[in-house]
Write a protein that binds this DNA or RNA. Structure first.
Lengths: 306, 306
DNA sequence: GTGAAAGCGCTAACAC
DNA sequence: GTGTTAGCGCTTTCAC
């Protein structure tokens, strides 16, 4: 067929407003043209950023994206996968609550490719951030400012990212350069638990505190402020994630930058790499780990020597 | 067929892991079982909250949800509608940038029902919040605290919500009880524009400021803090939206509470009401407006009389 | 009541 | 190359 004809047909189709029907196409090709992203809590800007990143990249690749918010509930995480899997070509999964066993049992639930985000599991492709490095940087920064007694307010112990952070903290603790005071584990959203943790930090004699994430850091600062403890003069605070609001707070938060949008794009790219691989000849699942870095802003200061 | 047989079939189907294929069903019924939600910026917790609400309600009604982030771009808003419409049964639309003409031209693009969220347009069903009341409450609160000269830092002038807020502000201004200083219009995300606005507020002699939204309020407070102006002692600040982080900031932000999740659920309900209406006999598009209320926290204080 | 058949919009594989 | 046909998984209709 001639190039001219081709163009005339295309023009006619356009004029009549013809759009191929994805559902009908999917019925025969097995491809839906959709991807899914599952997150524990959209209200946490960290995950909103991830959704935005997935969305942007998927759009660029001509795919629409389903978003599922699992409310940090193990059951809903599993449900979301089961529900979404038949509707999509693949899933970007942030499921901190799911056990390793459940994760591995996913192959019985669906054979759609799943890319883990901010979690590692043997046999799964994943994109993670180097939180061990991030935590080490945070403590090195505090050490350089003269802090020798530093509190760490941890998050939900069971999650992969919490364990990574803990590993970073412990590495520095065992170096003997700074003394670490572990202040329990706190839900990673702003509530009473954080207030309690702030009081424990204050009682511990620590001059600085590293928080599980920026939200927890904000909670701590809020309590410090209510108790008339000035940040950073009397207490230095370091967060983790570098959510957009971290730079807007007063004082702006010193925090570990985690490349959220970048990780999201990388996950989508990994997904399409898998999708592009002919079934049967599966490639070794790639595990990408992205670097983090400390962003020094206004919530940390050199200790005032007595 | 007997009840027993029905149950045996159901059991067998379950055992074999049978799931009806939505795409195939949709081909014949014309229903996809999906809904779409379009927002200008997922990174703004206000819209993240809306997505979460839409998602939760739609899940309860057995529908999966597509999310599209339009980056506050008029073109992308139109694109998103065009792309999403064929894949869904209806759309919840937050599109502040789209002109009224484009909005009305949507009937040529798709006949899928569209529910407007936080925007009103004749002929469209919508869910909005009473921002006029909210702004009035904010100014009344400041007046009661003794403030007589109040700055208002507005947002993108063309949007519906900005006009509503402005109407509320003007109503109070014309009452003569407080003098309003209009400080331009600022992009509703944290950046240099806000810094400049903060400086204008400071130069104006105002003792209090009402911000377009919480994000802008945070930006102002950050600049005030850098310029050693204490909030609320020397400057009271009121935000709008009541995003989750508003209560976490130091000081916690006094702000106009907008029922985000509630509005999202109402929008989905309106959508399903439309979907349940047999084609042809269309009902008058409903326009729900939800009440707002002021949440007084720590960023406002009584003026210190000289 | 129950079973068979047609067809939603598309793509694959097959003849021509 | 080009045109035709079968069929993806489901629902609906129409005979039985």
């Amino acid at each position: 067929m001639s190039e001219v004809t081709r163009e005339r047909v295309r023009a006619a189709a356009d004029r009549l407003g013809y759009r191929p029907n994805r559902a009908a196409r999917g019925l025969i090709t097995g491809r839906t043209g959709h991807v899914g992203v599952i997150v524990p809590d959209l209200l946490n800007p960290f995950f909103a950023d991830i959704c935005k990143g997935v969305q942007a990249r998927a759009r660029g690749l001509g795919h629409a994206v389903f978003v599922s918010d699992t409310e940090r509930d193990e059951g809903l995480e599993m449900d979301a996968i089961r529900t979404l899997a038949p509707e999509v070509d693949g899933i970007v999964l942030c499921a901190p609550q799911l056990s390793s066993e459940e994760l591995r049992s996913l192959s019985d639930v669906t054979d759609k490719p799943i890319i883990l985000l901010h979690r590692k599991e043997p046999g799964f492709a994943s994109v993670t951030a180097d939180l061990v490095e991030g935590m080490t940087d945070a403590l090195t920064h505090l050490h350089a400012l003269g802090h020798r007694r530093v509190a760490y307010v941890g998050g939900p112990r069971s999650t992969w990212t919490a364990q990574e952070r803990a590993a970073g903290i412990e590495a520095m603790a065992s170096s003997g350069k700074v003394e670490i005071i572990q202040v329990g584990s706190v839900a990673p959203h702003f509530d009473g638990g954080i207030t309690g943790a702030a009081d424990v930090v204050l009682a511990s004699g620590a001059t600085a505190v590293v928080a599980f994430n920026d939200i927890v850091a904000f909670g701590l600062i809020s309590r410090f402020s209510a108790r008339k403890v000035r940040v950073p003069d009397e207490m230095s605070v370091v967060g983790c994630d570098d959510i957009a609001l971290a730079g807007m707070a007063a004082p702006p938060l010193t925090t570990v930058h985690v490349p959220k949008a970048h990780a999201a794009r990388a996950a989508v790219d990994l997904l399409f790499r898998t999708l592009g691989t002919p079934a049967g000849e599966d490639v070794e699942p790639l595990q990408r780990v992205l670097p983090t870095h400390l962003v020094v802003r206004g919530s940390t200061a050199a200790i005032e020597r007595p």
